[in-house]
Computed example of a mutant assay.
Amino acid sequence: MITTADVLRYTAFSTDPEGGNPAGVVLDASGLDDAAMLAVAAEVGYSESAFLTAPPQGFDASGQAFTARYFSPKAEVPFCGHATVATAVALAERTGPGDFVFVTPVGPVPVTVASVGGVLIATLTSVEPHIEETAGEDLREALAALDWTAEDLDPALPPRIAFAGARHLVLAAATRARLADLQYDFARLEALMHRLDLTTVQLVWRESDSVFHVRDPFPVGGVVEDPATGAAAAAFGAYARELGLVPGESELTLHQGVDMGRPGVLTVTLREGDPRVRVSGSGARIPELG
């Protein structure tokens, strides 16, 4: 039986163990059922933990393939980008850089790990994304839960629900100061997110054509804020392309975690002719306590 002492701990989207977003990583979860995985994730206490088992029977992949599941302290989530990056880095440290495939609840997610200047960089390729309009009453409820007004929004980046493995409500702040001041009604936002089947709310401020600052409230996962959110970054890349905010062939830089004291950098790559979104970042092992 696996205990939390057997769980690897890695941060994603930073080379500093005190930056980025920490994830629990279980490279062999074959002895765990759903309840046990949830219990481990709850005890670890990170926003998500990843659990690998053998791929589905007959699954054909050019690289190493695994079934991947993701649990927050409160529930299973369909896909988690930062835990995917953390897990891929952990695997590459043991088997070397290369190609992996994570068979997730939303579909296969290819991940490539390369050594760049001696640093392992993992790049995941999302499932095919889509974007939805946001109903007026849902937007008003989100703003009320966040204690934002309509004037706090950037009209150049309209609210949308974006999906690239998980659903995220994208709201753009008109100013960096508005983004920095995050104090919200946890229970009210959680209730709205459950109703809309959202994983996070992605709050965005645009610094330049290709540089964005983001924050992700995550009450449905049992935490106030996610420090670096790969799934939301993928969804945001699809959102930005769909709305014509960036060219179809683009590389975007997302800064997240700065206001939490856990800075991380997520690179989002869009390719002409491929609807999928690529999200890249580094990772680092978190030293054991004691």
Rank of each mutant, 00 (worst) to 15 (best):
S208W: 04
D226F: 13
P227V: 12
S30D: 10
V116N: 07
A135E: 15
P56H: 11
P97E: 01
C80P: 06
G31D: 15
A54L: 14
I121V: 15
E93H: 09
L289C: 02
V279L: 13
T199E: 14
A180K: 14
V268C: 05
I121N: 06
I161Y: 01
I131P: 02
H82T: 02
D6V: 01
P263E: 05
M1G: 12
A177F: 09
H130Y: 15
V201K: 01
A191E: 13
D60A: 14
H168L: 09
E76L: 05
T112S: 06
A166Q: 08
L157Q: 08
G273M: 01
A174Y: 03
G221L: 06
R9C: 14
F66K: 04
G257K: 08
I131E: 08
L124T: 07
D226P: 09
R262S: 04
P78M: 02
V214C: 11
L179W: 05
L266N: 03
L182V: 05
S49P: 01
L254S: 02
R206Y: 04
P275D: 08
D34N: 11
L270P: 05
S210A: 14
G290F: 11
A162L: 09
D154T: 07
E288M: 02
R69Y: 08
R94V: 06
A12M: 10
A172V: 06
G261E: 08
V101N: 00
F236D: 06
M193D: 09
Y184S: 01
L179F: 02
P227D: 11
H82Y: 01
G117V: 08
G58E: 13
G244A: 07
V103F: 04
Q256C: 08
